[in-house]
Amino acid sequence: MADVRRFLYINRKAPYGTIYALESLEVVLIGAAFEQDVSLAFLDDGVFQLAKGQDTSGIGMKGFSAIYRALGDYGVTKLYVETDSLATRGLTLDDLQAITFEDENDGYTEKPSIIPVNKAEMAKVMAEQDVVLSF
């Protein structure tokens, strides 16, 4: 497709309290087929979506945190995490699950998908987009 646009999906909500996180993922997975330039942003309570060790057995809901680790296979390799949101919630990058992708432009070397950014850098990421979908 000649017209490649920069899509940013902004995730601002905790994963199971509302359906936004799950349905945002569904858009990302469908959208991957359109071969656009896709980035994901995680800020506010959205940083909890990437927390490691999630176990939903106690709440009777299907867990979906493993899907984030598969995003690289869909060509979704840029996951911007806002570090102020982490710090505010007592989290560090070590509390997030490891998410990687195989870089086809670099001999399929495994590289981290999570890109930590501060607020100013996140604003810059947003300003560079063509389409911003906020969930």
Binding site: R5, F7, G31, F34, Q36
Partner: peptide
């Protein structure tokens, strides 16, 4: 959902 992605591609503003 493809309709959502497509309108993002086809429109000047979403």
């Amino acid at each position: 959902l493809g309709q959502l992605i497509e309108m993002g591609i086809q429109s000047d503003r979403l």
